[in-house]
Amino acid sequence: MSTTTPRPQPPAPASTAAPAPLRTAPPPDADAAVLVRGLRKHYGDRRAVDGLDLRVERGLCVAVLGPNGAGKTTTVEVLEGYRRRDAGEVRVLGEDPQTAGRTWRSRIGVVLQTANDLAEATVAETVAQVARYYPDARDPREVVAAVGLQEKARTRVRALSGGQRRRLDVALGVVGRPELLFLDEPTTGFDPSARHAFWDLVDDLRASGTTILLTTHYLQEAERLADRVVVVAAGRVVAEGAPADLGGRAARSAVVRWTEHGAPRETVTDSPTRTVAELAARFADLGHDEVPGLQVLRPTLEDVYLSLVGGAAPGPSEPEARS
């Protein structure tokens, strides 16, 4: 995408938001597009979602990050009104998705993880048809152009490539001018250039004021798009914060390894330089110029993420559970 739209500045965090408009009794959490407390959902014996809390402020892009089977899609499908929850409180745009009606559905946009349908209609026909379902839809031609499919407008959906079809999915998700857009692993299977084009498109939507709840298992995608990242593992939130904080806090901690009395030793520290200096001094006292087997290991963001979600983390650090 060759758009020149600058990446929108994320709005200030809710706690330091601009003065609230004059209102006698502001409803609690009026600025939250999504509010989830203690969500639980199980399939048979398996607890897919196990006490999950989530809050998405209006105008933000929040990424839910986690491995396959962490409960991301189940959570999102509860929020979209597809699934019934077993327990917990859920408000999406102020309503309970289980009982919300057509008006509520006209205010959300849904891009599902997989869809393989709509084969014999053209791109333009498909978008125009779905636009009719909404009270205040965007111009379908504009939307087709915005996702970069104007060249394919008269192509049957069946003939689109995987990436083009995904962009059509997004067009169908936004044509109703949603206040809140759900993107469930939108770029799975994209090549890098298609992924970057897609990110620019999401930026444009952000700029137009759309709140976005994104699930992904690409760390880079969450970093690039989200104001806040929520890491989910085994059905609950294990970490939450701005992408930079999530990486920054963990990146400060490093592992220093060395060999002493013929055995490997290691220590986790937030100040590896001081640790190395202390080691050097201690070994110098013992008459060694070098600290044997000295290594300083810093975790990559991927290490941080893997250790958070309990994967086979090659990373050395074990950051605390909440940042």
Binding site: T3, E179, L201
Partner: peptide
Amino acid sequence: MTTTTPTTRPAPTT
């Protein structure tokens, strides 16, 4: 991809 952005008029009231 394109320079067209979706229309940026505010969402209508519920």
